[in-house]
């Protein structure tokens, strides 16, 4: 296996450091050599992207060029970053003028983008590099069939032809990993819809409405928790449950994928940053027998 850079993006280190820690722990546990990137910049998603195309290409292009300099491919753990890096790679690979323009700026740092660096989202690494069999072998405390909803987010899977992570309408990778860890991945209305996060800047009310609808649909399908593959989605789907009229007991935990996997793989909660989760994942951990539960005992008695 090659060595990888994990590109965290702006949001994870500050708003969800547990995601960063869990990612590094799980990748290490599964034998993937992942390193932090230093002296990088924002990928330019959303804001620079909307103002100037060449500037956007340069922002993401620099990250790619730095990875090339160190001979490592890039793993993105934020959906927006994944989308940006992959999109910019596609732009630079197919538009020679743009590539020349970006390389001209990069040359001032002795950096160059040639195109040999690959960009992967965390899901691709887990599915293609590690493989589901290896993940299954690493599970020591499976989830015993707890119902979970996979949320992919938009920039992870779309636009499909460019990012090529998973099927845009019927994605399977998170669901498959949930099942590999012993959970029961449920289908729910609007599964491929956005979490609403990107809308927070322009219209918070609409953003909250979009996110809340997702929570409603997930609950209606009987899921006890959500598993995400993007930091922004994770924060948004957690945050909307704290809105007006939201009862603490009604909130369902939103776990990042490595936190979810790590718990089943026997990695301790401190390492995974679980205590920092705003909505306690205890109900899910009970299912993994990490915490003794009267609930499970009652259910088993009822079955007899």
């Amino acid at each position: 296996m090659t060595d990888y850079f994990v590109y965290t993006g702006c949001t994870t280190p500050v708003r969800l450091p547990a995601y960063e820690a869990a990612t590094m722990a799980v990748l290490k546990h599964l034998g993937v050599n992942a390193h932090h990137m230093k002296d990088v910049n924002c990928c330019g998603a959303q804001y620079i992207e909307s103002l100037n195309r060449s500037a956007f290409a340069a922002m993401s292009g620099r990250i790619l060029a730095i990875a090339e300099r160190f001979g490592k491919d890039v793993i993105a753990i934020c959906g927006a970053c994944s989308g940006s890096l992959k999109h910019v790679k596609h732009m630079l690979d197919t538009e020679p003028d743009l590539k020349a323009e970006v390389n001209e700026i990069l040359a001032e740092e002795d950096l160059e983008y040639t195109g040999k660096v690959e960009v992967k989202h965390l899901l691709q690494i887990l599915r293609d590099e590690v493989g589901y069999d290896a993940i299954r072998r690493a599970i020591v405390q499976p989830y015993n069939g707890v119902k979970l909803a996979a949320h992919y987010g938009c920039h992870v899977t779309r636009p499909a032809e460019i990012v090529q992570v998973d099927d845009p309408e019927v994605p399977r990778s998170i669901d498959d990993i949930i099942e590999a860890c012993g959970g029961d991945a449920v289908d729910y209305a609007g599964k491929v819809r956005c979490c609403g996060g990107p809308m927070l800047a322009m219209d918070e009310k609409v953003a909250t409405a979009i996110g809340s609808e997702k929570i409603t649909n997930v609950k209606a399908a009987g899921a006890k928790g959500i598993v995400t593959a993007c930091v922004f989605c994770n924060i948004q789907l957690t945050q909307v449950q704290f809105g007006e009229g939201g009862e603490p007991k009604d909130r369902i935990p939103v776990l990042t994928l490595p936190q979810f996997m790590g718990a089943a793989m026997g990695i301790d909660e401190e390492t995974l940053g679980m205590p920092l989760n705003k909505i306690s994942p205890d109900v899910l951990l009970e299912f993994a027998h990490r915490i003794e539960s009267k609930v499970i005992r009652r259910e088993q008695e009822a079955k007899r």
Binding site: R158, P198, M199, M202
Partner: peptide, 10 residues
């Protein structure tokens, strides 16, 4: 106001 979620594109 477009969220760039790209479902329309899909």
């Amino acid at each position: 106001l477009c969220m760039t979620c790209r479902l329309c594109e899909e």
